[in-house]
């Protein structure tokens, strides 16, 4: 905090050191030569009160170079007796650390409590942004693998998209594992795309323009997209046609009771 009184002294002294043509004066308040004291009006009515307010042009000068606070040092007032407020037993400097520690400890405890409350509020708000329980419940699909016969591809609906689960035959597995990566547009080995070689799990959306491919069709015996003629093999890899990428493999785990959990 800057006390304008102190500051103005500083300015005054500098202006006195540097001599220039300007007349330096420190006019804070103009006090008339003659003190005309008017008898104080008794402020008892609304009218009186209203009249006691300044009516004409009223100026207040302020700024760094002007003292706006006027203090009167009184010599006729005795300093009150504070002895009942003072610590009698010991000097205040001796107990200073103890007292400070106590207050800081209370302030620290308040900070801890406030931080705890703030954290729980923030976590509540943030967790309200995450997916709700009904959405999470729909995000997983459980498939009984014993229902899918060998050599068949079954379609499920998962998160609004078709999901192909293919129970591959031994000859399909050996064919796909024998394909050299140099022949592929999007080189991925068959073991990269499957967890167990008998089961192929892919999302049934053609990587070209999003059509749904037909199972067990096309030149490579896997999937065939009827829209623009993309041929996928039995590992869901693009072999022929306009599609740029292999069919997407979602995350899935084999549960121990012979079922597959996708999602």
């Amino acid at each position: 905090m800057i006390k304008t009184g102190n500051f103005s002294k500083l300015i005054k002294s500098t202006s006195q050191v540097v001599s220039n043509s300007y007349k330096t004066s420190n006019k804070a308040a103009v006090i008339g030569k003659k003190d005309v004291t008017q008898p104080p009006t008794l402020l008892l009515t609304n009218g009186n009160l209203a009249k006691s307010l300044p009516t004409g042009n009223f100026y207040v000068c302020s700024g760094p170079g002007v003292t706006t606070q006027v203090r009167f040092a009184h010599t006729d007032i005795n300093v009150p007796d504070w002895s009942s407020y003072r610590r009698q037993d010991k000097k205040s400097t001796e107990s200073e650390d103890t007292r400070k520690n106590f207050t800081y400890l209370i302030a620290g405890a308040g900070t801890v409590g406030g931080a705890y409350a703030a954290k729980s509020v923030v976590t509540h708000f943030i967790s309200s942004m995450s997916a709700s329980a009904d959405v999470l419940a729909m995000a997983k699909i459980e498939v009984k693998l014993s229902d899918i016969p060998e050599g068949k591809s079954v379609t499920f609906k998962w998160r609004g998209k078709p999901l192909f689960i293919r129970h591959r035959t031994g000859s399909e597995i050996s064919t796909e594992q024998g394909v050299p990566l140099s022949q592929l547009r999007d080189p991925e080995s068959d073991s990269q795309r499957t967890q167990k070689p008998e089961w192929l799990v892919v999302i049934g959306v053609c990587t070209h323009l999003g059509c749904v491919p037909i199972a067990n069709a096309g030149d490579f015996g896997g999937y065939y997209c009827p829209c623009h003629g993309s041929h996928y093999d039995a590992s869901g890899r693009i072999r022929k046609g306009p599609a740029p990428l292999n069919l997407e493999v979602p995350t899935y785990v084999f549960a121990d009771d012979g079922s597959l959990v996708v999602g």
Binding site: D97, K100, N101, Y104, T111, V112, A115, Y116
Partner: peptide, 25 residues
């Protein structure tokens, strides 16, 4: 010792508050 070690500086004060929040929670 306590005052000079922890409460005197805001940095140590805040650090202590955060550490104790962890346990307090």
């Amino acid at each position: 010792t306590l005052y000079n070690a922890i409460f005197k500086r805001t940095s140590t004060f805040v650090l202590l508050a955060m550490a104790s929040t962890f346990f307090f929670e």
